[in-house]
Design a protein around this nucleic acid. Structure first.
Length: 849
RNA sequence: GCGGGCGUGGCGAAACCGGUAGACGCAGACGACUUAAAAUCGUCUUCCCCUGGAGUGCGGGUUCGAGUCCCGCCGCCCGCACCA
């Protein structure tokens, strides 16, 4: 027998054995309980990175464990294969996006295979293939028919570098999420999905997701952003530019008697109308639009306004006139684009009022503070209404209800719920995406592509030598006849946002018939996904869209459930030290000039000091950061597998750091993992004459079995790893016995989900028949989970002074007696009797002196 | 600014309901085996003024007993951001 486990020989052999046995194929018709384990599918960028390895290893351990504990497991893999990078590659390297993407998929699939993941490759899918996106087009048309899709001329976020529209969710600090370019505003006819129809349900549904991280639920709740308030109309004392009133929305209708002005957004219809005759206003509005949306700009931007000269009439007092301003802090995109200004109780309104010398009447006050003037801080705390006529003396909540009731009775306002969430703009002016399956006819308008003409296949003969969408320049694809009237018509050349592709792929994994998107009955056998694992960066976009899409499918009667992912886990990043060197050789201690990043494999240590291998220049070791190409601190998983094998890489991904936290990759860490793999091999192959019982070892084993099961179910892989180290230590110390032989077999079963290749090799070397991947998880004997003896801590005044060994379950009196016999304790008590004795059975005795 | 999370040895971290803080790993020290090295094995490793004392970011509190609960600070990280 080999002295060492040789992964280079063994890994491939077992991967082939699993393939041949179809060990991980999910059976739709199995009578076993179903379990769907899913990791977020990758974008085929070309190579897998350590983040993928970590993500998929976690899912794999769970999937393998579930299989061993009697579940029929669905653990699929596919490719989120549409998107910008393929087009960028096409422009830079003159390759077709499809060729580039498919080559990347092949390369990454080969890499994933080498890690030995227990995946059902028979269900592999790529979103860029017509047999996937064709069904997506069918779903889009069903949503269109059901009124969940609409088209509207709208101002969009235009990314001038990527030459495409971005959803609000894809604009970060006023910049495109991918290109980083400053986003411009443009008017375009766009397709929208009515996610706002489900705003309330998407928010309330979060409460029914106990196995989601609170953090993610909170982020989604904030994003959906529900607020309750009053929408009401101010009349203008005289009509202007065709408007006789202004609708505003307020979450604080209780403060209505504290209003001192009305402010409207620069893009408000009234402001636009007025600006046509007022060049000064037009200039001010233009200035407002220019103000960036970046964080610092908003923070430092002064509240500015333009007095329109108009007056609004207070709804409770026809004599009370409020000046109407156009203000830079009012956003057209939220509420009605107009607000009532209550300076005493809103900080922005207060800043504005101070600048334009408007009154600041207090209408809410804490006990005894009714006369306390407002200075530069608005009062937003609780209290009772003052200076507010019929509201005086009410609490804030009572006053809100009273004002809403009056407004509704008087017919000038309505209590409403407003959401921050906007409809999902899905049109992209790109080639490499799912074609939107509609035809524009001059006579018939928008005509859906008939179902029997789906899929609308992307044409392959396109060129990328000009910026913009090549579909616009493709006459034979674009020009069609209208399916309704037969006249000349044009295809929609926009494609769907790639987030649409990832909004239902988990359903297609569960069921993939040729003639329809999925079979309801089969899909529902697997869904919802039991455990979904991926990065926190998808907390809002992907997860919200997928929740919406699932609700839309339910609305269409295609599914019976609303939440796609029962359990969600967001794993931490893989990080690495960063290394930099200077272009100029300088005396020590001087400022480093012109630094450049150095990759880990180009760093070597000479006399304990890091230097760049090629130049010998000294290296500065920088912060530990997420592995990224820009910082060059990446480690290629394939190189690691070549050197250490898949199991060591997998083991390292699971050790040390809790899975939700960042994991720092290090050479020492992977070396340690390698040593452990070899240790297990030595334990498993070191045959000994086996007889006799070892009760302590039996107990240790059964505690470990129970503990590991618990840890894997909770995804606490680092704790499971620690327990396995303890078991290995115990096995090495133990004398040969039948117990030990059994424990070694059991240990192989316990490590099989984590280091499956070694487990198979050792399992077979020890003469077992069949694949360990398909073996049963060892049974726990509950009798062996309890000890006969326990260690009792003896404290004096809460401080540990001694310990003693007592039989499990010893009564309080005998524990106390034993404690008082301890010589150390006698010394500490200096002969005095304790004032009080606290005994916690099987744990401790605390003597209070 | 708003919301959330986290602070434990040289490092990554354990510690279930308030009950022996530091399991387990990394790094390190010493030793064994070896012609030698690698590999492997063994012992030690929170700190200090070391028969004792201190110690889980800092300061208080509750309790027989606090890493864990409460109050007040400090620091770091993440998300959102003029949302009316």
């Amino acid at each position: 027998m080999e002295k060492r486990f040789n992964p280079l020989a063994a890994d491939g052999r077992w991967q082939q054995a699993w393939d041949e046995a179809q060990a991980f194929r999910a059976d739709d018709h199995s009578p076993k309980p179903k379990c769907y384990v899913l990791e977020m599918f990758p974008y085929p960028s070309g190579r897998i990175h350590m983040g993928h390895v970590r993500n998929y290893t976690m899912g794999d351990v769970l999937a393998r464990y579930k299989r061993m504990t009697g579940h029929e497991v669905l653990h699929p893999m596919g490719w989120d294969a549409f998107g910008m990078p393929a087009e960028n590659a096409a422009m830079e390297k003159k390759v077709h996006p499809g060729d580039w993407t498919r080559a990347n998929i092949a390369a990454m699939k080969a890499q994933l295979k080498r890690l030995g993941f227990a995946l059902d490759w028979s269900r592999e899918l790529a979103t860029c293939e017509p047999d996937y996106y064709g069904h997506e087009q069918a779903l889009f048309l069903k949503m269109l028919e059901a009124g969940l899709v609409y088209r509207k001329e709208s101002e969009v976020n235009w990314d001038p570098v990527d030459m495409t529209v971005l959803a609000n969710e894809q604009v970060i600090d006023g910049r495109g999420w991918r290109s980083g370019a400053l986003v411009e505003r443009r008017k375009l006819a766009q397709w929208f999905l009515k996610i706002t129809d489900f705003a309330e349900d998407l928010l309330d549904g979060l409460d029914a997701l106990p196995d989601w991280p609170e953090k993610v639920k909170l982020m989604q709740a904030n994003w959906i952003g529900r607020s309750r308030g009053l929408r009401f109309g101010f009349k203008l004392d005289q009509a202007a530019a065709g408007h006789d009133g202004i609708d505003v929305y307020s979450t604080r209708p209780d403060t209505i008697f504290g209003a001192s002005f009305v402010a409207i957004a620069a893009d408000h219809p009234l402001a636009l109308a007025l600006a046509e005759q007022d060049s000064a206003l037009a200039a001010f509005a233009e200035e407002c639009r220019r103000t960036g949306t970046a964080a610092e700009e908003i923070e430092t931007a002064e509240k500015k306004g333009y007095d329109t000269g108009l007056n609004a009439v207070h709804p409770f007092d026809p004599e009370w006139k409020l000046p109407v301003f156009v203000a830079n802090f009012v956003l057209m995109g939220y509420g009605t684009g107009a607000v009532m200004g209550v300076p005493a109780h809103d900080q922005r309104d207060l800043d504005f009022a101070r600048k334009y010398m408007l009154p600041v009447p207090r209408v809410v006050a804490a006990e005894g503070e009714a006369d306390k003037p407002i200075h530069d801080e608005a009062y937003t705390g609780p209290g009772r209404l003052v200076n507010s006529h019929f509201l005086d003396g009410m609490s804030v909540d009572e006053a809100k209800a009273a004002v809403i009731a009056k407004a509704e009775d008087g017919g000038w306002g309505q209590g409403t719920t407003v959401f921050r969430l906007r409809d999902w703009g899905v049109s992209r002016q790109r080639y490499w995406g799912t074609p939107i399956p509609v035809i524009h006819c001059a006579d018939c308008g928008i005509v859906p592509v008939p179902a029997d003409q789906l899929p609308v296949v992307l044409p392959e003969d396109v060129s990328f030598d000009v910026p913009g969408n090549p579909l616009d320049r493709h006459p034979t694809w674009r020009d069609v006849s209208c399916p309704t009237c037969g006249a000349a018509a044009k295809r929609e050349t926009d494609t769907l946002d790639t987030f649409a592709d990832s909004s239902w792929y988990f359903v297609r994994f569960a069921s993939q018939p040729e003639d329809k998107p999925f079979d309801k009955a089969i899909a529902e056998q697997w869904l919802p996904v039991g455990q979904y694992i991926g990065g926190i960066e998808h907390a809002i976009l992907h997860l919200l869209y997928a929740r919406f899409w699932t609700r839309a499918l339910k609305h269409l009667g295609m599914l019976d459930f609303a939440e796609p992912f029962g359990g969600l886990f967001t794993q931490g990043m893989v990080t690495h030290e960063t290394y930099s060197a200077s272009h100029y050789d300088q005396p020590e201690g001087s400022e480093p000039a012109k630094l450049y990043w150095v990759a880990p494999e180009d760093v070597e240590y000479i006399d304990g000091k890091p230097v760049e291998r090629v130049s010998g220049r000294p290296i500065t070791v920088g912060r530990v950061e997420k592995m990224s190409k820009s910082k060059k601190n990446t480690v290629d998983p394939t190189a690691i597998i070549d050197q250490y094998g898949a199991d060591a890489a997998r083991w390292f991904m699971l050790s040390d750091s809790p899975p939700e936290r960042d994991l720092e990759w290090s050479e020492a860490g992977i070396e340690g993992a390698w040593r452990f793999v070899q240790r297990v091999w030595r334990l498993a192959t070191d045959r000994e004459p086996a007889a006799g019982e070892d009760k302590d070892l039996d107990r240790k084993l059964h505690k470990t079995i129970a503990g590991i099961a618990e840890d894997i179910e909770a995804l606490s892989f680092n704790k499971a790893v620690a327990k396995l180290y303890e078991l290995a230590n115990a096995l090495e110390k133990a004398q040969p016995s039948a117990s030990r032989t059994q424990a070694i077999d059991a240990m192989l079963l316990l490590v099989a989900p984590m280091i499956p290749h070694l487990a198979e090799e050792a399992w077979s070397a020890r003469g077992h028949e069949g694949l360990i991947a398909l073996a049963d998880w060892p049974k726990v004997d509950p009798a062996l989970l309890v000890d006969d003896e326990v260690t009792i801590a003896i404290q004096v005044n809460g401080k540990l002074r001694d310990t003693l060994t007592a039989p499990k379950g010893a009564d309080k009196a005998s524990l106390e007696a034993m404690a008082l016999e301890s010589e150390k304790i006698i010394a500490f008590l200096e002969g005095k009797a304790p004032k009080k004795v606290i005994v916690v059975p099987d744990r401790l005795v605390n003597l209070v002196a």
